[in-house]
Design a protein around this nucleic acid. Structure first.
Length: 107
DNA sequence: AAACTGACTGTTA
DNA sequence: GTAACAGCCAGTT
């Protein structure tokens, strides 16, 4: 039996899935676009994890507000290659060089 | 209903 | 520029 997601949750899912190819966004933006406010970024993580098909969620396209990207050190090379393939340049420390260019907003 | 959790953000040192 | 502290929200237990 499935539980009905809240409006906020659905909005978050929609925003997360609406990230175009080659673009990235921050949790704060999604939270804001969902109408929860930049503080709701806390729940974004959990909400994305609660997505029934969370495997379809492009987590790798969601980055920190400070421009840092999350990925395991072991998968770093693969992730970086994937990012580069999407047109996103990642720094050695996992920071996005052209963050401003690939930053997608839900305005 | 209360407490805990979560791929976070912003401020302060 | 890096490190540490506190704060907020929704969902789950």
């Amino acid at each position: 039996m499935k539980k009905e997601p809240s409006y906020f949750t659905k909005k978050v899912w929609e925003c997360a899935l609406s990230i175009p190819h080659g673009k990235v966004t921050t949790y704060g933006d999604i939270a804001r676009a969902a109408g929860g406010g930049n503080q709701a970024s806390r729940s974004i993580t959990h909400i994305l994890s609660t997505y029934p098909e969370h495997e379809k969620i492009p987590f790798h396209r969601i980055v920190y507000a400070n421009g840092k990207v999350w990925f395991s050190l072991r998968e770093e090379k693969k992730r970086r290659a994937l990012y580069k393939k999407e047109g996103i340049i990642i720094d050695e420390k996992g920071r996005i060089e052209n963050f401003n260019e690939v930053h997608f907003t839900f305005v």
